[in-house]
Simulated scan of single mutants.
Amino acid sequence: MQSSREEKLAAWRAAEQAIRGRLAAPGTLSLAEVSALPPLEFFTRIGNGELPSPPFGELVDFVPLEWSPGRFVFQGRPDARHYNPLGSVHGGYAASLLDSCMGCAIHTQLQPGQGYTTTDLRISYVRALRGDSGPVRAEGRIVHLGRSTALAEGRIYDVDDRLYAVGSCTCLILDMSN
């Protein structure tokens, strides 16, 4: 059993290292530039280093790892930089990962010319994240995608499938073509 865990941990670390090796320097595009691209192309071009990586990922130390229609996975490594005064990772770290993976899951299904913004974010914390918890993954999936709103849910888990937090979000779908 321990060997299987070590193999999975090594695979997670290798996947993260591979994507980190391809990511371009942090930077941003305009909303018009982002919304003009088909969503999966947008994320693939970030993952291939053809577009700048989001600066926020560097700040909180997580990277986009996997994406497909309606699903998005980030991987991160919480550490002492993310600690609150109680000696565990601040809840905002988990909230940021969940907001990101759920919002990006919704983004994968938008049409060119559409954007989104989170209108509601709900998080339930299951156990404390600590510096030795990582790497962790935040996985978001679409629950509903309508014309004006979308709903997604997400979870944060580690290599042993221990659950740290779950969440859901509602996003407002925006027309960016104007």
Rank of each mutant, 00 (worst) to 15 (best):
L29P: 01
E139T: 08
F56G: 01
A18N: 09
I46E: 02
P54K: 01
V73M: 05
R147N: 06
P135C: 10
R141T: 15
R20N: 11
A14C: 02
L110R: 01
S100W: 10
F74E: 00
T28A: 04
V166Q: 04
S177F: 04
N48I: 07
S53Y: 12
P112H: 08
G76W: 01
G57I: 01
H144N: 14
L98W: 11
A15C: 01
M102V: 05
W67Y: 15
I173H: 04
H107Y: 15
A95K: 00
E16A: 15
Y164D: 01
S96L: 06
T44G: 10
D161S: 08
F72N: 02
Q2T: 08
V126Q: 09
L97H: 03
P78L: 05
D61M: 00
N48E: 15
E58G: 15
A25L: 09
W12M: 13
L121V: 08
V143L: 09
P78E: 07
G49T: 09
D132T: 15
P135S: 07
A14P: 00
T28V: 01
L37P: 02
L163Y: 08
L9N: 10
A105I: 02
Y164S: 02
L121I: 07
A94D: 07
S124D: 15
L110I: 05
L37V: 10
V60H: 00
V126P: 00
A105S: 10
D61N: 00
C101F: 05
S100T: 15
A94F: 11
M102H: 12
S3A: 14
S100E: 13
G140Y: 09
F62W: 04
R20D: 12
A10V: 03
K8M: 11
S133G: 09
Q2H: 04
P38T: 12
G27E: 04
G49S: 07
C169G: 15
V159W: 04
V73E: 12
V73Y: 05
D79E: 08
H107A: 14
S148P: 00
G146M: 03
M1W: 08
N178Y: 14
L40D: 06
I156E: 14
D79F: 02
S3N: 09
V60F: 01
F72M: 12
I156A: 13
L163R: 04
M176P: 00
Q109P: 00
W67V: 11
W67M: 11
V143Y: 01
I156D: 06
D158G: 06
L51S: 12
V89L: 04
K8W: 06
P69A: 13
G91Q: 06
G134A: 14
I142L: 13
L9W: 04
G115Y: 08
G21I: 03
V89A: 02
E41V: 10
G47V: 03
C104Y: 13
E153I: 06
Y116N: 01
E139V: 07
S35G: 08
Q75W: 02
L86T: 09
R147V: 02
V63A: 10
A80H: 12
W12V: 03
G27V: 05
I156M: 11
A32M: 03
K8I: 08
H144A: 11
V136G: 07
P54D: 13
P39E: 12
S68T: 14
A80N: 11
Q75D: 07
R155Q: 14
D132G: 10
L31F: 06
S35T: 13
S96T: 15
P69F: 09
R122P: 00
T44S: 13
G146C: 08
L65S: 03
T44V: 00
G167R: 02
P26M: 10
